[in-house]
Design a protein around this nucleic acid. Structure first.
Lengths: 191, 191
DNA sequence: GTAGTAAAACTAAACTGTTTAGTTTTATTT
DNA sequence: AAATAAAACTAAACAGTTTAGTTTTACTAC
């Protein structure tokens, strides 16, 4: 394997769990099974490594979520398509998965790394809103005037649910089945 | 002013901006204009100070948002009340305000401090869901079956909007007026 | 009341031992 | 010759403690 890849994988393990300030370059080198000199020769400094990692992750997540295979899913009856889409968002990434930890990192470091937050929005949030908007536009029977705003209502409901239930450990405090949220959301959209 | 208060105020300035790992006890003491020994005599160690700060902030935010004055706002015609509620959430806390920075901190540190995330959910998220659920229940003409799930749709739409637009600097990349979101949300709820 | 006193809270600074980002040096591999 | 490794290194910052001395507070004796 290329050293650069090995370093990024080691960096991922550390940064995702410990955050930027909590991660040391020594531990990154150890996690990557690479010498510290090699890390510095490839990425210059800590910030350079962090930026490279987050940008690579954003692109990777983009291609995971917005591949052709997934695009074709957004065709067909709203009742079916929207339920499928929502179920995928609520069920997938249910454990303490990489995706949720990535969002945690971006939000947590957004104050100190605004550029990375913008990368995240450009690569993941914006395409998400656009794909959903386009689907809503292709279904005039839904009688949705403002597709983009409605797409944000849908995404917001689902993302907020995941954040509260999983990321902030809300399942014990405010328990709720994902299906209840999905049913209520679809009820609003389809009535 | 009490020393304890001064320390918490200094700690707030540092922790909210720099995060847990990024904040040093020396800088907290300096920001509070207090000696380091005093900090340690009051809060034991760094973690103790951090926990005390977050819990105090959670309680403070709670009383700000769920005071009697605000409760009474949730009475009257849905068209008016819901628009007022949504507008308040979208407009208030518009700059890089303490509230948004607090959420950033909670989300960012939720992996390393699960207890604090639970405090946040218990003190702010849960009451928010409950108050909104109760209002929806008081308005049967809205024909909402699952009030709690619908309350989450409303809160999710608004919180996600603020997170994307302000916290993650989305205003430049995916611009949108708050009114558009509110109109679409109300359109779904009232039709 | 006022002077004296003792406990408690406080300060500033030095200190310990660890960890940090980043560099350099020397040696090994390819 | 170029990339790597391992290890030693620097200078600074870190959490937390200790020290030596000051201020505040409250209580006592007169």
């Amino acid at each position: 394997m290329e050293k650069k890849e090995k370093i990024l994988e080691g960096a991922m393990k550390e940064f995702l769990v410990q955050g930027y300030a909590g991660t040391s370059m020594d531990r990154v080198a150890k996690a990557a099974a690479v010498s510290k000199t090699t890390v510095y020769s490839h990425f210059g400094d800590k910030e350079g490594l962090f930026v490279a990692l987050v940008e690579r992750l954003a692109k990777k997540k983009y291609s995971e979520v917005f591949s052709q295979g997934n695009h074709s899913l957004l065709q067909g009856e709203p009742e079916v398509v929207l339920r499928q889409f929502a179920t995928k968002m609520v069920d997938l990434a249910c454990e303490d998965t990489e995706d949720l930890t990535f969002i945690r990192l971006i939000v947590g470091e957004s104050g100190r790394f605004p550029k990375l937050a913008e990368t995240f929005v450009s690569n993941l949030v914006k395409p998400g809103i656009e794909v959903l908007s386009q689907y809503l536009a292709s279904r005039p029977e839904l009688e949705i005037e403002d597709r983009e705003a409605t797409a944000r209502v849908i995404l917001g409901s689902l993302v907020y649910f995941k954040i509260v239930q999983v990321m902030l450990y809300g399942e014990k405090i405010v328990p709720m089945e994902g299906d209840r949220l999905i049913n209520s959301l679809l009820h609003l959209l389809l009535r």
